[in-house]
Design a protein around this nucleic acid. Sequence first.
DNA 1: GCACTATTTCGACATTCTTAGAATTTAACT
DNA 2: AGTTAAATTCTAAGAATGTCGAAATAGTGC
Lengths: 111, 111
Amino acid sequence: MTGQVEQAAERLKALGHPVRLSVLRCVVQGPEAGTPAGELQVRLDIPASTLSHHLATLADAGLVRVTREGTTLRYRADYGVLRALTEYLWQDCCSGGTALESTPSPCCGGD
Amino acid sequence: MTGQVEQAAERLKALGHPVRLSVLRCVVQGPEAGTPAGELQVRLDIPASTLSHHLATLADAGLVRVTREGTTLRYRADYGVLRALTEYLWQDCCSGGTALESTPSPCCGGD
DNA sequence: GCACTATTTCGACATTCTTAGAATTTAACT
DNA sequence: AGTTAAATTCTAAGAATGTCGAAATAGTGC
C-alpha cells in the first residue's frame, strides 16, 4: 500500500494552493449534492480550463468526488477523507511527541 | 495582512511533501528544545543540503523555529501555528457548510 | 444528425520545485 | 591564526506545476 506519509503529503499538497483551497471552501459551503463546476467558475472567476485542472488535482487526491448530472458535473467534498487527513495531521504529525503531553485537544478545544 | 487563505495554503503546501512531513514528525517526536539538523539528517538519511532547503521551507512557512546552540541549529515545531492551521483546515475549510451541521468534532472525537 | 451547453483535454510556455555536490559561513577550541 | 564541526548558501539541471486559449468530448433536445 502507499505509505501513510506519502498519501497525507499528497493530500496536503493538493490543499496547498490558494485557488484549490478556495475551491474546497466553495464546495463545502455549497449544497450537499455537490456544486457544478460552472458555478465554481463563476464564483472564483477563473478560466474554466484552469479550474478544471485544480478540480482534477483535488479529485485525484481523493478530497472531492464528482457526480455527473446531465452535462454538468457536480463536485462535493469527501468529508471522511478530509477528516482523516485533519486527524492525521494533528495526531500523527503534531502531537505525537514529548512536548505536548497534556495539550487538551487539537481542533475542538481552543479559543 | 496576507489573506488567510493564502497563508494557510502556503503552510499546507509546506507540509505537502513526504520529506518535509517526515521532518516535521521527527521534530515533533524529538526533544522540546529542538532537534539538531544533523540528527535529522542522520535519521532521514538525505543529503544535508537537501534537508536544509526543506527546513528552510518549513521555517519560512512558520511551522518550525530555529535556535542556535554553538555550531548546531536546533529545530522545533511551532505548535501554536500548527494548531491554528489544523483548526483552520477543519473549521473554515471542511465544516463551514451546510453538509455537516451535526458533525460532532473534527479531531478530538471520532473513532 | 445538428446545434447547444457544460467541462474537459490538448498544447505550449513560464515559473517554481527538487535534488545534491561544491563552496562558504558560523562557532568553538587549541 | 589554524583546524575542525555543523549548517547553510551557491550553482545547476531535470522534473513538476500553473496558466489559459483552442480544440475536443459528453450529454440533451430538436
